[in-house]
Simulated scan of single mutants.
Amino acid sequence: MQDCIFCRIVRKEVPAEIVYEDEQVMVFKDIQPAAPVHLLLIPKKHIPTFFDLTEDDVSLIGHVQLVAGRVARQLNLEEKGFRLVSNCKEDAGQLVFHIHYHLLGGRTLQWPPG
């Protein structure tokens, strides 16, 4: 947890272009964007994967979802929409083992993603 890059960003030890922050959630720009809008939404609480969630985290994860909509609206994505994606474990493409969501928008996104 101490070496987790997202925990270090939350503690402001590593710089990030933060676009939203409250007591529970941080949203910042992805350093390798896959779309014109590519943000990472993370709970400030370190939770490695979805398999590590507990009943105590239900409100936190719901809050992340609400923040996604609010931030997308502020970025004028309400009309065209956005994609919210989270990868769980290696085969799904999870590179940082701290639950996070990718908010992608600003262009037409293809399906299936990969």
Rank of each mutant, 00 (worst) to 15 (best):
Val58Asp: 13
Asn87Tyr: 15
Arg83Leu: 02
Ile99Asn: 09
Leu103Ile: 04
Ala34Arg: 13
Arg107Tyr: 11
His100Ala: 03
Leu66Cys: 15
Gly69Gln: 06
Leu84Glu: 09
Leu109Arg: 05
Asn87Pro: 11
Lys12Trp: 09
Lys45Arg: 14
Leu104Val: 06
Glu17His: 10
Cys4Leu: 09
Leu104Pro: 04
Ala92Leu: 05
Cys4Gly: 04
Ala34Pro: 07
Ala68Thr: 00
Val37Ile: 14
Ile99Gly: 02
Leu95Arg: 10
Ala72Cys: 03
Leu40Pro: 04
Asp3Asn: 11
Leu66His: 12
Pro43Ala: 03
Pro113Phe: 14
Glu21Trp: 03
Gln94Tyr: 02
Glu13Gln: 10
Met1Asp: 12
Leu95Ala: 06
His63Gly: 03
His38Asn: 01
Leu53His: 08
Asn76Ile: 07
Ala92Tyr: 10
Val27Tyr: 04
Gly62Asn: 11
Phe50Arg: 13
Val19Lys: 02
Ile99Asp: 01
Pro15Gln: 13
Asp56Pro: 15
Pro33Ile: 03
Val19Tyr: 01
Pro112Phe: 12
Lys44Glu: 01
Phe82His: 01
Ile31Asp: 11
Pro113Gln: 13
Ala72Pro: 00
Ile5Met: 14
Leu40Tyr: 02
Arg11Leu: 11
Lys89Thr: 05
Leu103Gly: 03
Lys45Tyr: 09
Leu104Asp: 03
Ile99Phe: 11
Gln94Cys: 07
Val64Trp: 02
Phe51Gln: 05
Lys80Pro: 00
His98Lys: 09
Glu17Arg: 10
Pro36His: 11
Pro36Asp: 09
